[in-house]
């Protein structure tokens, strides 16, 4: 099973772009989706059952769509309200005995103010981001971009 997780708050403008992209994905066999405000320890079971995982998240520091491979790393501590993907994978490895292959799709974002609207540039980038998720689902070994 491939798992696609949209990360972000849809009441915080562009922060919700990952959630929107994942909600818009057509249902496909062998693919599960989830939408969360933050990555938390609760996701370890779902991540642990997945063959591959893609986290789709807004990133203010990015100027272009970027797909990055991530691995379990460090910071297995506390159960705060937000984990980095690497820390969630480390948690998953500890709890489930394995961590799946995982990637982050970073979507360029500009505004994190209160609001449900996306910035115009983010709206223009939505089709490409949605296509990037579909490409990831089709490609068993996508390379970093």
């Amino acid at each position: 099973m491939d798992l696609v997780v949209g990360v972000g708050n849809e009441l915080r403008s562009d922060d919700g772009v990952g959630a929107r992209i994942v909600r818009a994905l057509p249902a496909q066999p062998g693919v599960e989706t989830d939408v969360v405000h933050q990555l938390t320890f609760d996701l370890t079971d779902a991540v642990g059952r997945a063959r591959r995982v893609l986290f789709v998240d807004a990133h203010a520091e990015e100027t272009h769509l970027r797909l990055s491979r991530v691995s379990p790393h460090g910071a297995v501590q506390g159960i705060g309200h937000a984990l980095a993907p690497e820390a969630l994978l480390a948690w998953t490895s500890a709890a489930c005995g394995r961590a799946p292959d995982a990637w982050v799709l970073s979507v360029p974002a500009q505004s994190f103010d209160i609001g449900e609207e996306l910035s115009p540039d983010v709206v223009r980038g939505l089709p490409a981001a949605e296509q990037a998720v579909l490409d990831w689902l089709r490609d068993p070994e996508p390379s970093d971009e």
Binding site: F41, T44, D45, G48, V76, Q77, G78, I79, W91, A94, A95, C96, G97
Partner: peptide, 14 residues
């Protein structure tokens, strides 16, 4: 903490 619990008894923790 729960990390220690995961290490001590991962099946129960999961």
């Amino acid at each position: 903490n729960v990390i220690g619990l995961v290490a001590a008894d991962p099946v129960l923790a999961r």
